[in-house]
Design a protein around this nucleic acid. Structure first.
Lengths: 186, 186
DNA sequence: TGACAGTGTTTCTTTTTATGATACACTGTT
DNA sequence: AACAGTGTATCATAAAAAGAAACACTGTCA
C-alpha cells in the first residue's frame, strides 16, 4: 500500500461515479491540480484533504486504502469498512456492502444491504438458499404468498428459488445482513 | 470520520498490541511527539506517515479509518424468537440460540452465540467455513497466529479448519451471529 | 523521603511539502 | 481551424508536519 495505490483507488471510484477531475475537485473544494497529483501518487496528501474527497464521492474514507489481496485464510471486515457495491446492474439504488469480497474460494457470500424508505420495492429469484438477519429498521418481506414484517433481530432462512420481495414501508433505512449460499448439489 | 477518530483507532490498535508510544514510534521511524500528536488528532498526517505506522503495527492501513459506532441500539434479538440450546455436549457454558432449527434441508446453520465475561476461552477446529458478525460486546478472537479484537459490526469469514479461539476479555457479554457451512466438496 | 525510570504531552524552531494559480498538452467535435 | 472539454506540469508561497528537548505524571524501590 502506497500513495500510488491510494491514488488509483480514488481514480477508480471517481470514474465509476462518472465524474471528471474538474467536477470532483470542485465538489471537494480542492483544485484540480491537487486532485490530479493525488490520483497520480505525486503527493502524500494529509487525511484532511482525503476526507474532503471522500465526502464528495460519498464513500467511506477507508475505501481509499484497499489493496488487492490474494487468497487469505480469512477476511476480517471492520464495522463500516466493507466495500460498498452500488446498485449498478440493477435498476434499484440499493447499496450492498460486501463483507468478504477479498476471499476467492468461499462458500458464503455475506453482505450488509441497506434499503431506504424511498427505494422502490424489489423482487428477487435465484438458486440456492438465503439467510437474512435484520440489523435495524423495518422491512416488509414477501415470500411466496406470505408477507412478513421484519424488525431488528428477526432472521429468516429460505430457499432463494421462492420468489421474494422487499419493501421498506417505514421512514428509516432498513439494514440487514444477507448471506447467499449456492446449492452445491447443482 | 475525522482526524480525532483516526487517532483513536490508532491508539486502540497500539494498546491492543501492548505497545507504548515510544516503542511504536521507534518501530515506525517517527518521533514519539509526532505519534502523540497523531493519536490525539492534533495533526492531519499525510498518508506516508500513516503508512509507516500501519506497517509497524502490522495492520492494513484501512484499519485506521473504520467508522466509529454511532447508533448502538440497532441490534436486538426478539424475545423467544430463537430456540435456546445450552452448551450440552461441550464443557463450556456458552448458550446457542438456533435461528433455523425448524428447517430440515438447510445448507446454512445460523445461530446467535453469547459468551459471558466469566466464560473460559474456547478453542475450535472443524471442517467447512464459518462467518461471524459481531452484534454486541467485545470478543478476542484468535485465528491461526493472529489475534483480532472484534467489536459490534465487525465481521469475519474464515475456513473453520484454521484453529480459532474465542475469549471474552471485556466485562459485558459478547454476542455474535455465527453461520456455519459444511464444505460440500467433501 | 528521594531518586529514578518509564510513561505520554507540550513548546518551539526548522524544514519539508502540499496547495493553488497559471500555463500547458491532449483529445474530440463542430 | 477554432473550440470546449479533458487531465497534467510548473512554480511561488503559505501552511503545517516533523523533530528536539523540556515538561509533567505516574509508578517503583531503596
Amino acid at each position: 500500500m502506497d500513495e500510488q495505490q491510494v491514488g488509483k483507488n480514488i481514480r477508480g471510484i471517481r470514474t465509476s461515479a462518472g465524474l471528471t477531475v474538474t467536477a470532483l475537485a470542485a465538489e471537494a473544494s480542492v483544485t484540480k491540480s491537487t486532485l490530479s497529483k493525488i490520483e497520480n501518487g505525486q503527493v502524500s496528501a494529509p487525511i484532511s484533504t482525503l476526507m474532503r474527497v471522500a465526502r464528495a464521492l460519498e464513500v467511506p474514507l477507508a475505501d481509499f486504502f484497499y489493496e488487492a489481496e490474494k487468497d487469505p485464510d480469512y477476511v476480517f471486515t471492520r464495522k463500516g469498512a466493507g466495500k460498498i457495491v452500488h446498485g449498478n446492474g440493477t435498476k434499484l439504488g440499493y447499496s450492498y456492502e460486501g463483507l468478504a469480497l477479498g476471499k476467492k474460494d468461499t462458500l458464503i457470500d455475506p453482505f450488509v444491504l441497506t434499503i431506504d424508505p424511498e427505494d422502490p420495492p424489489g423482487e428477487f429469484y435465484h438458486e440456492g438458499q438465503e439467510f437474512i438477519y435484520m440489523l435495524s429498521g423495518t422491512l416488509q418481506f414477501s415470500i411466496g404468498d406470505d408477507v412478513l414484517e421484519l424488525h431488528a433481530g428477526d432472521s429468516l432462512l429460505f430457499n432463494s428459488g421462492t420468489t421474494h420481495k422487499t419493501h421498506n414501508t417505514g421512514d428509516t433505512p432498513a439494514r440487514f445482513l444477507c448471506i447467499f449460499i449456492q446449492n452445491p448439489k447443482k
